[in-house]
Design a protein around this nucleic acid. Structure first.
Lengths: 188, 188
DNA sequence: TACATTAGAATGAACGTTCAATCTAATGCA
DNA sequence: TGCATTAGATTGAACGTTCATTCTAATGTA
């Protein structure tokens, strides 16, 4: 039943959920172990320590996200369409994975954030390239990728979070408006 | 020399800086006490406990920010100008107060965030009203304040953070572009 | 038997919080 | 003015708990 892959996945899944709900420093390793159906000690076979577990989980989450996005991309479409489709996919992904959003935001705003290095052929890098193309085509403002992201991905996460927490309720119409807003922020 | 107000201020100042640098759970009360030039126990005269200290500090930070902003507002100007001026002021404020940005982001993305209630006449509320006016005047999209904020304040904090951490260097020109981007995201 | 895997108890350090004792300064009073 | 009283501020050691990590012994496996 439980090979290594499964056990690691279980630990990841539980850690994500617990940290989303309780925060990093309120989720003891013992609780992670118990809810993963394993023991405290075993986690240290798979991960060096708690921090390593968190960093690994974040990497997992990020690559998973990029994979999901890439799967929705359609290179046939006009590049503007592609952007909007991807932003909508991103928004939907955040709405469908509330715990992931909470975890990601906590991690990326904590002082422990490691600047993770992406493998050259990773899906993340593919997405970056799309932005570079749009810049070259003079479709969007010639700004570094980090800034483009600040005006697109960042608001979309924040928006999904509002929705997930029930502070607002996003209608389909509002989602379209939101994607438009992102595009308007960066288009030339 | 040190009346109550001063001591509380000292505790706030030190807490802000330490949490910005080390994070909530890596900032022991003892360290806060030491660097505030006081003792561990005294903090518990001013605050119920560590959480209360954090919540109070966040309230302080938020009201301070709103006050700074309001002081830059010029009701004489056209409302579009007013918006852009305020966004620029906000961006500058974040750039000039990097620790504040770190603290705010950590707090607001932690599961401990309390939905703080603002006094009806607070500066925060005044700023909200400006948005409501712009909506009525059909200058910006008719979206709830929270969403407007997601497309303006949120990217600006994130942008300032990138700059403060040295990941990008914001030129004056880029700052203007950024403010434009915010406006483009919400304008009708 | 030898080795890997696992469970869960044990360890020890870190930390939030408490509290009895002391200090400070303002007020009352002669 | 000079002394007494009081309330609040302050200290720092001590306490009890939590928790990451390690250890030990039991179990599975070849």
């Amino acid at each position: 039943m439980s090979n290594v892959k499964d056990k690691k996945k279980a630990i990841f899944r539980v850690t994500l959920k617990l940290i989303a709900k309780q925060g990093f420093h309120n989720t003891p390793m013992s609780q992670i172990a118990k809810l993963s159906g394993t023991s405290a000690g075993i986690i240290y076979h798979y991960f060096e320590n708690k921090e390593d577990l968190i960093h690994s989980l974040h990497y997992e989450v990020k690559t998973g996200m990029a994979q999901e996005l890439i799967s929705k991309d359609d290179p046939q479409l006009h590049i503007v369409k592609r952007f909007k489709l991807l932003y909508m996919a991103l928004l939907d992904y955040f709405i469908n994975n509330p715990d992931l959003v909470e975890f990601m935001l906590q991690y990326e705003n904590s002082p422990y954030e490691k600047k993770t290095m992406w493998k050259e052929d990773s899906n993340i890098v593919k997405l970056f390239n799309l932005i570079n193309i749009a810049v070259k085509d003079k479709l969007i403002k010639p700004l570094p990728i980090e800034i483009i992201s600040v005006f697109t991905a960042t608001p979309l996460v924040a928006l999904a979070k509002l929705h997930n927490k029930g502070i607002i309720e996003l209608t389909d119409e509002m989602k379209v408006t939101a994607v438009e807003s992102c595009w308007n922020a960066i288009k030339l």
